[in-house]
Write a protein that binds this DNA or RNA. Structure first.
Length: 154
DNA sequence: GCCAACGTTGGC
DNA sequence: GCCAACGTTGGC
């Protein structure tokens, strides 16, 4: 049994917020249309892995909650629907291109850990999500970074 | 609204 | 296969 890995997922709260996840309890993380992010889900994310839930393009930006991967990667059905914004004609049931995982709500962080607070913590300077210009919606988090973040809102 | 940092597209 | 143009993301 490999030890759990840790991840950060970004979402614009207008699209899907931590309160939506708290309400739903569990959701499928669909709509990722970036190969590197897909590969993280397909090749990395396993049930039990820890997830930092991040709100982007809002005020305040930052980590707003914790979740757990509850199902390993499987085909993203939203890519099959021509009426869906994330439709991709290359994606078929027999040859899926895009994948998603399920995540389960754990808890909210109160108050959220703002982007400024993350940037001011020396232990987090190498965090992938803080890298200048980063646009990945799913990024890996090291065990040290996970411990540091969780310790900020025990 | 601006712009940096990419990823994607398409002409050649 | 190269690379310029274009589109998107997302912080500021």
């Amino acid at each position: 049994m490999p030890s759990p890995s840790y991840w950060l997922v970004k979402s614009e709260p207008d699209c899907y917020s931590i309160d939506d996840l708290a309400r739903d309890g569990e959701t499928y993380w669909s709509g990722v249309r970036n190969y590197q992010a897909r590969n993280s889900m397909r090749d990395g994310m396993q049930p039990g892995d820890g997830v930092l839930f991040y709100h982007s393009s809002t005020e305040p930006m930052g980590i707003v909650g914790l979740a757990t991967v509850s199902r390993a990667a499987y085909p993203d059905h939203t890519a099959l629907d021509p009426d869906d914004d994330h439709y991709d004609p290359r994606h078929t049931p027999d040859t899926p291109v895009w994948m998603m995982v399920d995540i389960r709500f754990d808890r909210k962080l109160d108050p959220p850990i703002t982007l400024a607070e993350l940037r001011s913590n020396p232990a987090l300077t190498d965090m992938v999500v803080l890298r200048r210009g980063n646009r990945l919606s799913v990024t890996p988090v090291t065990p040290e970074e996970w411990r540091t973040v969780v310790a900020m809102r025990p």
